[in-house]
Design a protein around this nucleic acid. Structure first.
Lengths: 219, 219
DNA sequence: ATAAAAAGTGAGTAATCACTCACTATAAAA
DNA sequence: TTTTATAGTGAGTGATTACTCACTTTTTAT
């Protein structure tokens, strides 16, 4: 597995289970909360229902989380961090500058494949993030911070590099991002949320997506 | 104004006001409900708050709508219908077959421009539709029906026509749709929901979007 | 002008909500 | 073993929820 994969792939629910200071019951609470909230939304989900599905007294939830909103935040924050994980990876910040032999198309493939697997392993969590991002300013603030400080600079460096290599059209980076992002995110949402049960040829779809992007912004 | 515009443009809230059998108070209720639900989501919105903002007794809401969910449905259903409105328009179903002189790029421009104006005039309604589509099976069913019976066939006919004209790559229609849809929808969401306050050069963005699509699927 | 129908009201209702707290059970430290 | 700290419990809290209904006000029909 390449550098970009190792650090960013496995499911976050598993990771929660491995977490240091977590009681078995606390893990059950998180799992139940993720399930129900992703199905019905945060507001329509009651703490009593979470407790019931977790096999736990309702009071136990409030031992671990001061409020229901605290519980939501502690679910969503790690998703934002992990979503930005590949932007910390070596492939992004180092390999690119060490004049690796990879071209932009190869890079795109690795990136999309990686985010594809992340989405695949974390559908309910991604659903919750997308839904609740619209309503909770704390989540918006966290996302904005990660985006501005990590994602946006890393993407800019990468695009600049491949521009210098003459592999990308000489459009403003913001324009390139505004075209690429909906294409990739739209693909993942279509694949895993809108039509999760359709029989997809994933490899073909990913390649198709790359071709579409390359036609749009490649030289 | 071209045929595609006339029938599909003006704001739906205005249209509600023009509606036949509606009391002034009922219109107030709808307006208040749209405002609050688009801000906080359906589940987090209480009927008492709607009544308060509408300047109406809570009981009045239930004179007009049997349940809170009935109110939501009666807000969202027309949005789905209007969203599909241009697919009924002459430009789509007739002009295309009457070998109009317009090429695919012109058609794309008219279409995106039209949906752009619709979104612009109905941001809160579009927000509500996007949010609640995820949770309510009645809304999903309505959307699926309109899509399968109206939108999908109209788009297919259009794509087939421009394919025969040799203006579009010989990709499967489903592939073309899977690429175009997120590009257009993603643009509108970015423009009006994610970054509504950014200073946009709308005309430039629309043209950029068209170029991107044409590179991807045009010949 | 009178009757009938429709629109609007707001106090009232049972159910549910997030959250608390005095208490018990378990685990770690002494 | 005894003490101390932590985890878990569930009945109980006041507030809020969607919704009802007997009643009043307004509009329409005659």
């Amino acid at each position: 597995m390449s550098e970009i994969d190792k650090s960013t792939l496995h499911s976050m629910t598993e990771e929660l289970s491995e977490a240091e200071n977590m009681t078995p019951k606390q893990i059950k609470i998180l799992e139940a909360a993720i399930e129900i909230i992703s199905e019905k939304g945060y507001s329509a989900t009651s703490t009593s229902e979470i407790a019931k599905r977790a096999g736990v007294a309702e009071g136990t939830i409030f031992r671990h989380y001061r409020t229901k909103k605290d519980l939501l935040i502690s679910i969503v924050k790690p998703v934002i961090t992990h979503f930005s994980a590949p932007f910390f990876a070596k492939k992004f910040v180092e390999e690119v500058f060490q004049e690796s032999h990879t071209n932009f198309e190869d890079f795109l493939y690795a990136f999309i494949k990686n985010r594809f697997e992340f989405a695949k392993s974390n559908i309910p969590l991604v659903k919750i993030l997308l839904q609740e991002l619209a309503f909770h300013s704390e989540i918006q603030a966290t996302y904005k911070k990660v985006f501005m400080e990590k994602i946006y600079p890393a993407v800019n460096r990468t695009l600049n590099y491949y521009k210098e290599q003459g592999q990308i059209k000489d459009l403003p980076n913001d324009t390139i991002i505004r075209m690429m992002a909906p294409t990739i995110i739209g693909f993942l949402i279509t694949r895993f949320i809108v039509q999760p049960n359709k029989e997809w040829d994933d490899e073909a779809e990913i390649k198709q997506t790359i071709t579409y992007i390359m036609n749009g912004i490649g030289k």
